[in-house]
Simulated assay, not measured.
Amino acid sequence: MTADASNKTSTRIPEPLASRRADRERVPAMRFSPGPATVAVASLLCLLIGLLYLALQIRTVFSDQLKQEYAGLVLEAAARAQSAREQVGVWQRMPAGHIADGRDYAADYRHARAELARHLTSLAALVNASPSATPRIPPAALSANANLAETDALLHDVSTYWHAQRDADSADVRLRIVHVARTLIGLAALLFCLSITAVGMYAKRNRQLAGRSHEFEHASLHDSLTGLPNRRKLLAVLEEAATHAGAAPTTQRIAVLYVDLDGFKQVNDSLGHRAGDEFLVAVSTRFREAVRKTDLVARIGGDEFAVLVRAFSSEPELADIARRLIACVVQTDEQSGIGVVRASVGIASFPEPVDDYRRLVAAADDAMYQVKRSGKNGYAFVAPAGRPAVS
């Protein structure tokens, strides 16, 4: 075996592994597309987290403000102690045992030392009572005979430390107030997004309900097989057309052509209902194409149809429409290769000879049955005397 052959053999992928890898490559990547409900839940969780964070920040701000006020009390006490220390220094510079104007400066010095000890005791009470870990003031520094140099160092250290503590607390308060403001802005934006999401969900639900309502209304007024209006829709449009015709300045005539398919039962019996349904769909399409757009073609039921003519000028115009409808049935029959289906058409018009539009469909139906009794495959008008004229 040559080196090239061995290299080819060594780099060949075993068939099962290759097929498994190809299957993995063909697996479509799953895409996560969050819907309005998912966005709303996530936004609510973010809102709750933001409110919790805001509460913690506000609590910390109050705590820092208390610390800042506490530091201010300590600094005020330190300032009073420092003032007492300066008074002690004034009396300390007086000559020992010196009495002037009947005043004993030594007694005043002792009083000043006692006053300094009292202020230091108050300062120590505040410092040592601090809840945070702060440098404590030892009891030895509170004595009236304490070393003044040590007292000066103590007051300096206390003032320096608590000034820094107050400044740090003040800076922390300012920083947390900024955080609170940003959190409030974020929560306001989140609430706005929640509102927009809720409005979007509400609008989408309304559109869905409106679409379903429209679908239900359409289904209740149309035939599910052919898509043509049904009897209910026909009667509603007929009433509207009759009302409009009665309100017109000049009397406008309307008419109904009732169409029944002759021999259609044989199609279902011999070829099956599927072939019959296909025939009905095809002839319905031709019916729509054979009339004007203003006219209405409806499926009354089974193999019966009706055409509402909203306006016409003469009976020959209706006769022409009837002939076109009969031709539609003949063409559909020939195209299907059946050879047995024809049409009988009854024609009734309002306000003459039918003076009540609510009887138009029944009158046209009666005229259609007269055609059937006269040999089928034709059309007939309702005569003024109430008897249809067969053509």
Rank of each mutant, 00 (worst) to 15 (best):
K376Y: 11
M94Y: 12
K233P: 00
T121D: 03
R20M: 06
A153N: 07
I254Y: 04
A171E: 14
I300H: 08
A164C: 13
Y105L: 08
S220V: 07
G272C: 01
A141L: 11
N147S: 15
A112M: 00
K265T: 07
T183N: 01
E317A: 15
P16A: 14
R176L: 10
L308E: 01
T151A: 13
I326E: 06
N147E: 15
A133T: 13
F264H: 07
A181C: 09
E334H: 12
E217D: 02
A125M: 13
A236H: 12
R21A: 04
V291E: 04
T151E: 08
N128K: 10
L280T: 05
K8F: 12
E317Y: 10
N145M: 06
D169E: 09
I321M: 11
L184Y: 09
H111L: 14
A149W: 09
V178D: 11
Y379L: 06
V307G: 06
K8G: 12
D366M: 06
L56K: 12
A241P: 01
Y202I: 08
A248V: 06
A343D: 01
M30G: 09
A153F: 09
K265M: 03
F192C: 13
D355K: 14
L73P: 02
P351A: 13
G227E: 00
V267N: 05
D355N: 10
D262F: 13
S284P: 02
E317I: 06
D172H: 04
L190S: 08
Y161D: 12
F381K: 10
L318T: 01
T60Y: 10
P229S: 12
S344Y: 03
H244E: 14
A100I: 01
E150R: 05
R21Y: 08
Q92E: 07
A164P: 05
S10M: 09
I196M: 00
A306T: 03
A242I: 04
H214M: 15
P139R: 05
Y105S: 00
G375L: 12
P138E: 15
Y109D: 01
G35P: 02
F287G: 04
V382K: 09
C328W: 01
A149G: 13
Y379Q: 01
A171Y: 00
S170L: 11
L44E: 05
P14F: 05
Q82M: 02
L54R: 10
A106F: 08
D23E: 14
V199I: 11
L48Q: 08
T38G: 10
V199F: 05
N147A: 10
V127C: 06
D157H: 10
L271I: 01
L47S: 14
A362G: 02
A343T: 10
S213W: 01
A117P: 10
D333L: 08
S143Q: 08
I254A: 09
A298T: 13
L148Q: 14
E215G: 13
